[in-house]
């Protein structure tokens, strides 16, 4: 699986990969497109947004969508389109930071636990069990109310939360890879344990890692929106889709429904498409999942 992944990247057959994506997984291709737009607007928000996210034009309050304001304006005359674009940046920064950091934590714990096994595995996994028995949102809310709201706090808490939970998945993958003879062979030629992990274990678990990454990304965007909705996320005036939905959206739902509808739709579309894209990657990377569009399990 991992070999397949590297194969795709290193043989520079990225175009082949994209072609297969479009042919076999049209939904995934759309997902990829939406992801690109999302990342693009996050990166280049300063150029894309016609207004600053905090620029107020009080004479244009609560305008419905028009050519001047694509998504209308809110109760103090801020351009909703610009705030959505800047909100993408917030979601993107938090989403990618958490996905990356949590994957690193997962790989660290999972590889340790899965490779060494035995007592270390036993102890680590019981700790993971204990950690996972707390409901996610409760942990986050408690932590935020102790540490105070803010981007850094959210990133750290969510990374820890997802990182520890995800280590279980990585551990399973590592235990599968470890049994291969090439790991034994590497040991037999005197490769150090650290190098075995870096060269022989980690490259071969990239398939589950890539799937974990996209699901974490989507989940983080959702949780960030939820936290901001509850007022525990990114503090105002910095725009976040969740807080837009909550503060402006809820208060003016009847006078200016677009204030609630637009952030809601954006969150849904982005999360849905990230999931679709992740699903497509998984299917394309797993040789057993290939075949005539349907998921066929062909035993080797």
């Amino acid at each position: 699986m991992g070999g397949q992944f590297l194969q795709i990247v290193s043989n520079n057959s990225l175009s082949l990969f994209l072609w297969r994506l479009c042919r076999d997984k049209p939904l995934g291709a759309v997902g990829a497109l939406v992801c690109i737009i999302f990342i693009f607007s996050g990166l280049f928000a300063d150029w894309i947004a016609p207004f600053d996210y905090n620029e107020m034009n009080p004479q244009d309050r609560l305008q419905s969508p028009s050519f001047a304001y694509f998504f209308g304006t809110d109760q103090i005359g801020r351009d909703v389109f610009s705030r959505i674009v800047y909100g993408a940046r917030t979601s993107m920064v938090i989403g990618f930071a958490v996905a990356l950091l949590s994957i690193l934590i997962s790989i660290f714990l999972g590889v340790l636990s899965g490779y060494f096994g035995g007592k270390l595995d036993m102890v680590l996994q019981r700790l993971v069990d204990a950690w996972m028995s707390f409901p996610d949102l409760v942990v986050v809310i408690v932590a935020v109310s102790v540490l105070g709201p803010g981007k850094i706090q959210i990133i750290l808490i969510l990374s820890l939360l997802y990182g520890i939970a995800g280590s279980r998945i990585i551990r399973g993958a590592v235990m599968g890879v470890r049994e291969n003879d090439y790991v034994k062979a590497a040991d037999s030629i005197g490769v150090t344990t650290t190098m075995i992990m870096i060269r022989h274990i980690i490259p071969n678990i990239l398939a589950p890692v890539s799937v974990l990454f996209t699901t974490r990304l989507a989940a983080t965007i959702l949780v960030e929106a939820a936290l901001s909705f509850l007022g525990l996320g990114v503090p105002p005036p910095e725009p976040s889709w969740g807080s837009m939905l909550s503060f402006e959206g809820r208060s003016y739902m009847f006078q200016a429904p677009w204030l609630a509808i637009i952030p809601g739709i954006v969150i849904t579309i982005v999360v849905y498409n990230i999931n679709m894209f992740g699903d497509a990657i998984r299917d394309l990377l797993d040789p057993r999942m290939r075949g005539s569009g349907r998921r066929q399990l062909i035993s080797q």
Binding site: G2, G3, D181, Y182, S188, R199, N204
Partner: peptide, 13 residues
Amino acid sequence: MIFQEPMTSLNPS
């Protein structure tokens, strides 16, 4: 040492 399973003795990546 040369192992018996050539299918799993080489790192696919």
